[in-house]
Amino acid sequence: MNSTLLVNIFRFILLLAVQIVIFNNMNFLGFVMPLPYILFIILYPVNGNKTGLLFASFLLGLTMDIFSNSGGVHATACLTLAYLRPYLFKFSFGISYEYQTIKLNDVLTPERFSFILLSVVIHHFTLFIIEAFQVSFFLDILIRALLSTIFTVILCIIIIYLIKPNKR
C-alpha cells in the first residue's frame, strides 16, 4: 500500500516536471502540443482510492494551469478524465474489470490501447473546447485536438514501454 502511494507521488512530480520542462516547449507545426502528463491519471491503480484520484488530478491540472496561465482549463479536463475513468475501464476491459488484475504498463493489447486512446481523446477534447470557449474557432479546435491526441497517444505508449518494470 505504502509503496504504491510513494510510486504515485513520484510519478506525479516526475511527469509534471517532464511536461513543463520538455513537452511544453515542443511545438510540432507551431501549435500541436503533446500532453503526456495525463499518464498519471491513466496509470493510477485500478482499484485505488477514487477520492484520492479526484484530488490528485485536480491538483495536477491546477499545477499545469499555474504554469501555462490558463485559468482552470487543465484542472477541468483532468477532473473529467478522472471521473470518467471507471466507465472507460468498463468499456475497454468488460464489466467485471474490478475483479481482474489489470496492469496497464505492460505489453500493448487492443484493450489497453483503446483505454489509452479514449482517455486521451476525452481529456484533449475537454481541454481544447474549454480553452477556446468560442464557437468561431470550431475547426481550429478540432484540428488541434486531433493532432495533439495523436502525438500524446504515441508519447504515452513510448513512455509506458520505457518505464515498464522488469519481469521477475
Binding site: 479526484l54 484530488f55 485536480f58 491540472g61 491546477l62 494551469d65 499555474i66 504554469f67 501555462s68 496561465n69 490558463s70 485559468g71 482552470g72 482549463v73 484542472a75 477541468t76 477532473l79 473529467t80 478522472a82 471521473y83 474549454i130 470557449f133
Partner: peptide
Amino acid sequence: FLLLLSISFFLTIQAHSYHKSKIISS
C-alpha cells in the same frame, strides 16, 4: 467531483472574463 469541477469552472470563467484579477497566474 462536482465540487472540484465547479471550482475549476469558476477559475476558467474568471480567467476568461476579467483580466488583471486572475487568481492563478504564472
